Amino acid sequence: MLQRAINPIRQRLDRIGIGLSGLCALHCLASIVLVSGLGIGGELFFAPDIHRWGLVVATLVAAVAIGWGALRHRMAMPFVIAMTGLTFMGGALAVPHGYKEAILTIIGVGLVSLGHILNLRHCHSAACKERCGD
Results as ranks from 00 to 15, higher is better:
108 G>F: 04
54 G>I: 07
63 A>W: 01
83 M>Q: 09
95 V>S: 08
67 G>S: 05
102 A>M: 12
39 G>E: 04
121 R>M: 15
132 C>A: 15
103 I>R: 00
84 T>Q: 03
120 L>R: 08
41 G>W: 01
14 D>S: 13
95 V>K: 09
125 S>W: 04
110 G>F: 06
104 L>M: 15
113 S>N: 03
70 A>F: 02
76 A>N: 04
112 V>N: 06
92 A>Q: 06
8 P>E: 09
68 W>D: 14
112 V>I: 13
63 A>N: 00
51 H>M: 11
96 P>Q: 11
47 A>Q: 07
1 M>T: 08
57 V>W: 05
99 Y>L: 15
90 G>M: 05
88 F>V: 09
112 V>G: 06
18 I>Q: 10
5 A>V: 14
81 I>G: 04
86 L>H: 04
1 M>F: 11
91 G>S: 07
93 L>R: 05
117 I>R: 11
83 M>E: 12
96 P>L: 12
53 W>H: 05
25 A>E: 01
1 M>C: 13
82 A>F: 02
71 L>I: 06
102 A>S: 12
19 G>E: 03
109 V>K: 02
5 A>Q: 10
17 G>H: 03
72 R>I: 04
23 L>P: 02
72 R>L: 15
28 C>V: 06
128 C>D: 11
78 P>K: 05
44 L>N: 01
82 A>W: 00
32 I>K: 01
130 E>W: 07
8 P>C: 11
11 Q>V: 09
30 A>H: 00
40 I>K: 03
13 L>A: 10
76 A>V: 14
128 C>A: 15
16 I>S: 10
80 V>E: 00
78 P>S: 10
35 V>F: 03
75 M>T: 13
71 L>K: 00
12 R>I: 13
108 G>E: 08
8 P>Q: 06
113 S>Y: 01
125 S>K: 07
125 S>C: 14
79 F>T: 03
89 M>W: 00
58 A>Q: 13
101 E>F: 05
21 S>F: 02
9 I>T: 10
118 L>S: 05
92 A>P: 02
101 E>H: 12
